[in-house]
């Protein structure tokens, strides 16, 4: 019997992170996400090249889009608002859905467990990795938008949506805070995807189910008759990140969003644990 290393948990986590971020699929997802701000930026640039504003007087389009042409930093917020409803959670759903089911599909799960990775430890490692991916994906969008915004549009002091003025430095700070909140908004989807991933041995099925659930919830969130249920949908408060751009910051929905994400993480995380630690591994 050898003594377990005190760093046992981190060895597997490091390996998991390396494995995840070396996959071509992960890089492709991040690449698509990085492309979104580029497209939005170029589109806004073209549309406003004649001096007109975007989205018409009605202020259509994703949040903050009208301000981009005046301050490139707003591209960060617009890009996050544009990717949060679908692109970001879809990417997270793919990575989370594949986390356990993909290993089961490839048969590598049995070798990890015999190694022995330990089921609880493996699940924690997987969830941590998915959350790191949430953060990485959000930061990729934000960083890409920041660069594209600075290249295509003027930068400088900006006006919050409450009409007050803040410096570019503080704006950058808020952009980082918003990116963190957006990443935290994906924690619920990540737990849901992980749970689905423990239910099946097919990575594709788990990914499809997670993304399907995501779309279903988004649709249900639009149905007025289900009004009473809306506050419990993980996507309901997603756009509350914009409240960080108010002055003073309006915390109510932000806090509700983070609480809801924590609840999803606890419920589906523990459900995934209950399922995975009692599951027969036959693949």
């Amino acid at each position: 019997m050898r003594a377990p290393s005190p760093l046992w948990a981190f060895g597997l986590l490091r390996s998991e992170l390396l494995t995840t971020f070396r996959r071509w699929r992960t890089l492709a997802l991040l690449g698509v996400l990085a492309a979104v701000p580029v497209l939005v930026g170029i589109a806004v640039r073209i549309e406003t090249s004649d001096g007109s504003s975007v989205g018409g007087a009605g202020g259509g389009g994703p949040a903050f889009i009208a301000q981009i042409s005046n301050n490139g930093l707003f591209l960060v917020f617009t890009a996050l608002a544009a990717t949060l409803p679908f692109f970001l959670p879809m990417a997270v759903g793919v990575v989370a859905g594949d986390a356990i089911a993909g290993e089961a599909n490839a048969g590598t799960l049995r070798y990890l467990l015999v190694a022995p990775a330990g089921r609880t430890r493996l699940l924690l490692t997987k969830y941590t990795t998915v959350i790191v991916f949430c953060l990485a994906a959000t930061l990729v969008v934000a960083a890409s938008a920041l660069v594209v915004g600075a290249l295509l549009f003027p930068v400088g002091d900006l006006v919050t949506i409450s009409g007050t003025r803040i410096t570019y430095g503080e704006g950058l700070g808020r952009a980082l805070l918003i990116a963190l909140v957006v990443a935290a908004s994906l924690v619920g989807v990540a737990a849901l995807g992980l749970f689905v991933s423990t239910l099946t041995s097919s990575g594709i099925a788990a990914m499809a189910t997670t993304v399907g659930l995501l779309i279903t919830v988004q649709i249900l969130d639009q149905i007025p008759q289900l009004h009473a249920l809306h506050p419990y949908f993980f996507s309901h408060y997603w756009l509350s990140f914009a409240d960080l751009m108010r002055e003073p910051v309006y915390w109510d929905e932000l806090v509700r969003n983070l609480g809801l994400q924590a609840l999803y993480a606890a419920v589906f995380g523990s459900a995934a644990w209950a399922r995975f630690t009692t599951k027969d591994i036959t693949s």
Partner: peptide
């Protein structure tokens, strides 16, 4: 390296 990392008893220094 990955399978070795999965073993909590394996010393990472000699991996």
């Amino acid at each position: 390296l990955r399978y070795d990392a999965a073993d909590p008893a394996a010393d990472p220094r000699t991996r």
